[in-house]
């Protein structure tokens, strides 16, 4: 049976996952059981991680149908490779990595000249500064307050959607995974094979570009 592992182990104190809220043991304990063939323990892991994995697959491919297949492949893959999983990494990161690889393979099969991305990024909008680094057009208009009134209006929703779609692929993916889905920088870096600083820089630039577009929407 499940050993109630209360140990907030020394292995990776900085990235220790939060205690599970589903009433089941933490990942590490379930993984040990699943590695011995306990498919019920694995089912709990699936239930626990499927939503985040779905978001990752959806964000990377932009397709619900692809996300569905990636999820199926990834979990089956994870089950089959589970004996190879070593407890020195977090299970969730390992899982993200499997799903991200599935998504990347799918994307490569489908389309996409990967080097188009960096060029596109040069055109990303952002704030303008004068030569001495002051805001060129001081953002007087503080639409952050007005946004509350308009909140979730359909028009705004469509505008945000359209704005996000204009971002280069990997900027959009990083932004969605981090700011919308709440993944950690480290997990995103792992999944997308980027460094953490690269994740942060894409995130920041994506936010700046979106902020400009929202400013336009609010007439700022």
């Amino acid at each position: 049976m499940y050993a109630p592992t209360n140990q907030t182990g020394p292995q990776s104190a900085a990235t220790e996952p939060p205690a599970p809220t589903d009433g089941h043991p933490p990942d590490a304990a379930l993984v040990l059981l699943a590695q011995k063939g306990d498919s019920q323990a694995f089912a709990i892991l699936v239930a626990r991680h499927q939503r985040q994995l779905y978001r990752l697959a959806l964000r990377m491919t932009g397709s619900e149908a692809d996300a569905q297949e990636i999820l199926q492949e990834s979990f089956l893959n994870a089950w089959q490779k589970l004996p190879l999983f070593r407890g020195d990494a977090q299970f969730s990161s390992w899982l993200y990595r499997i799903a991200a690889n599935g998504a990347l393979m799918r994307l490569r099969r489908k389309r996409r000249a990967p080097d188009a991305v960096s060029e596109q990024a040069e055109e990303l909008a952002g704030p303008k500064f004068t030569a001495d680094g002051q805001h060129e057009e001081p953002p007087h208009s503080d639409w952050s307050q007005r946004a509350d009134e308009k909140l979730l209006s359909q028009e705004l929703g469509e505008h945000i959607n359209a704005a996000v779609r204009t971002l280069p692929d990997d900027y959009r993916t990083v932004f969605l995974l981090k700011d919308v889905d709440g993944l950690s920088n480290e997990d995103i870096a792992d999944a997308l094979e980027l460094t953490v600083p690269a994740v942060k820089s894409r995130l920041h630039r994506a936010r700046l570009a979106l902020r400009e577009q929202l400013g336009d929407f609010f007439g700022g």
């Binding site: 952050s144 909140l151 979730l152 945000i160 996000v164 919308v180 936010r207 700022g220």
Partner: peptide
């Protein structure tokens, strides 16, 4: 200007989260 910038920068994230959050469909 920077205070306003920070406010709108943060708001960008909030608005995106509120409009774009993806739920895994039940059928899936």
């Amino acid at each position: 200007p920077c205070i306003t910038f920070v406010r709108t920068y943060k708001k960008t994230t909030v608005l995106a989260r509120e409009t774009l959050a993806a739920q895994m469909p039940r059928e899936l």
